[in-house]
Design a protein around this nucleic acid. Structure first.
Length: 278
DNA sequence: AAATTCTCCTGAAGGC
DNA sequence: TGCCTTCAGGAGAATT
């Protein structure tokens, strides 16, 4: 499932090939994603030149002179850059066709989005309330302390809230809390500044390392060339419930938090006395 | 208001 | 073999 590192890997893979390339046609085979793909997409995009490919959180933004194509890969979406026009496979919903490239969106679970934004994309409802980029200078300990002080929700839900910080999904939130020795249920406002500093630092470090390794491939994720990422081998907690902790050997446990599996080490990430267990 | 739950969707995995 | 249930989850929408 693409989180920030995976989306960034896709962006970096597409950029050198598609920057300044003109779209000659658009094929929409299935328009029902998270939101319906706008009916006028082909008309808006045909003949337009990609000016830039940027990222905001887990969103990809393709900039054109007449607007912005906003793309979210959801859980299972992938963008593949083809150099030949292969016959479409199952769930190959959309093609952006260039002179010598085919950019193909495949999304089995259809949680992704493909939207056309006419005006400044940063004022769009989906983007305007997003929190800071975790790898930017705006994401600081001071910021986290101020945000966490007024919130009682579990730190893991807090970290995965895109209004607090963008791009951190279940995999990386799980890893950050393991790396910092913090129990996922700890209320955000009970964390000490020192712990929030550790969260801030580890978030940056883990995301950077994941990008360097090409992202995390659990099952679906491939970059724009169809290659998987190699960060899965580095995951210490996510997906390892029932396996020994890499630091102390205790069997990792799993709980359910905000509809998501949360794996943690009961010894390295102790629950504090204040936390309710039910 | 903040916190929690529901919802969309398909494919894989497990039970019988 | 097949049918059923459960699970995986990003994030907006709905509800508490």
């Amino acid at each position: 499932m693409p989180e920030l590192p995976e989306v960034e890997v896709v962006r970096q893979g597409l950029m050198p090939h598609l920057s300044q390339q003109k779209i000659v046609d658009v094929v929409v085979r299935c328009q029902r994603l998270r939101f319906d793909i706008p009916a006028n997409l082909t008309k808006q995009l045909t003949g337009q030149v990609i000016q830039a490919i940027s990222r905001r959180g887990k969103y990809l933004l393709f900039s054109f002179d007449n607007g912005t194509l906003l793309c979210h890969l959801g859980m299972s979406g992938s963008l593949r850059l083809l150099t030949e026009d292969h016959p479409p496979k199952k769930h190959d919903h959309v093609d952006l066709i260039f002179k010598s490239y085919w950019l193909r969106l495949n999304d089995p679970r259809r949680f992704g989005m493909l939207l056309w934004i006419k005006n400044n994309p940063l004022t769009h409802p989906l983007l305007k309330d997003l929190g800071p980029e975790p790898l930017s200078k705006d994401f600081t300990t001071t910021y986290l302390v101020s945000q966490a002080s007024k919130r009682t929700l579990p730190i893991k839900a807090f970290l995965m809230n895109s209004k607090v910080v963008v791009g951190v999904g279940n995999i990386y939130a799980t890893e950050v809390l393991f790396a910092t020795g913090i129990h996922p249920l700890t209320p955000a406002n009970q964390l000490k500044p020192q712990q929030l500093q550790a969260i801030c630092q580890q978030t940056k470090q883990i995301l950077r390392k994941a990008i360097q390794r090409g992202g995390t491939t659990l099952k679906d994720f491939v970059n724009s060339k169809g290659k998987p990422g190699y960060f899965k081998q580095r995951l210490k907690a996510y997906g390892r419930a029932g396996h020994p902790c890499v630091d102390c050997g205790t069997l990792l446990e799993q709980l359910r938090l905000a509809q998501r599996a949360s794996t943690f080490c009961p010894l390295c990430q102790p629950i504090t006395k204040q936390i309710k267990t039910e």
